[in-house]
């Protein structure tokens, strides 16, 4: 059987590789490998293009990690630490609106979860250290905060509400990695269902009115725990069966 096709929202970014320094459509391979390891086929959706017709070809979509979302989207002035990517914002807001309208199975990772809140009328905390008084949600600059051998920075527990999609997937709690300095303040049309127990930062959101719409603040693609991707691919297979 053909694998479900999963779109991954990607960067258009100035990158350096080898002797090259150029604008590339790109995404860390960890996302691609997570989709392939759980039975999907990944394609990268670059942000340059404002149309949403590509969704018609997809069985599911992952809104991936990246830079900060422009606070103008929820009417706030930018914090000094906020670094936005307006082109990607515009593209992903359109894609997410259309994907929600279509009931396309979706997973939001880090920025992607924040996009779920913002695109449905919610808002973000722009700089968590100001709010919670510590940096434990983000590793030291210049390190690879998500590497297996990274310091204890950016690892913490998540506790999960009973009788939710997240609870069925993860149980009552799990330990996650963490690399973000912003967080969901108001989840919009999504429900907050998982929190960091130390500071009550929202770590998981879901949308009960959608076939499958789950957002996680951590980076499951950088771990061996690919349950969010497994669940997305399963939902994509189910969605295709319904459509056919």
């Amino acid at each position: 059987m053909r694998r479900p096709l999963i779109g991954l929202t990607a960067y258009a970014e100035q990158v350096q590789y080898g002797r090259n320094d150029l604008m590339a459509g790109m995404l860390p391979m960890t996302y691609v490998k997570a989709v392939h390891a759980t039975g999907g086929r990944a394609v990268l959706i670059t942000p340059d293009d404002p149309g949403t017709d590509v969704l018609e070809a997809l069985d599911g979509i992952v809104f991936c990690g990246g830079g900060d979302i422009d606070p103008a989207n929820w009417g706030a002035p930018p914090h000094p630490a906020t670094e936005v990517d307006k082109v990607r914002d515009r593209s992903e807001l359109m894609l997410m609106g259309a994907a929600l309208d279509a009931g396309l199975p979706m997973l939001g990772v880090c920025r992607g979860m924040q996009m779920m809140a913002v695109s449905t009328g919610g808002s973000l905390h722009q700089h968590l250290p100001d709010l919670v008084g510590h940096e434990r949600h983000r590793a030291a600059p210049g390190t690879d905060p998500l590497a297996a051998n990274a310091s204890d920075y950016g690892r913490h527990d998540v506790v999960i509400e009973d009788e939710t999609l997240a609870h069925r997937l993860f149980g009552r709690s799990l330990t996650v990695n963490s690399f973000h300095h912003q967080a969901v303040a108001d989840p919009g049309a999504f429900l907050p269902v998982g929190w960091c127990p130390d500071d009550r930062v929202i770590e998981i959101v879901e949308h009960p009115g959608q076939p499958f719409a789950l957002g996680v603040q951590w980076h499951p693609e950088r771990t061996n725990d690919l349950r969010p991707f497994e669940a997305l691919v399963e939902a994509a297979v189910r969605g295709r069966a319904v459509a056919a």
Partner: peptide
Amino acid sequence: SYVLPATWGVWVDLESALVPHDYV
């Protein structure tokens, strides 16, 4: 696309799928 170690923002030599944006 390529798969190469790419460097951008805070990330150094992170294995990435990429293609020059000119194609897109």
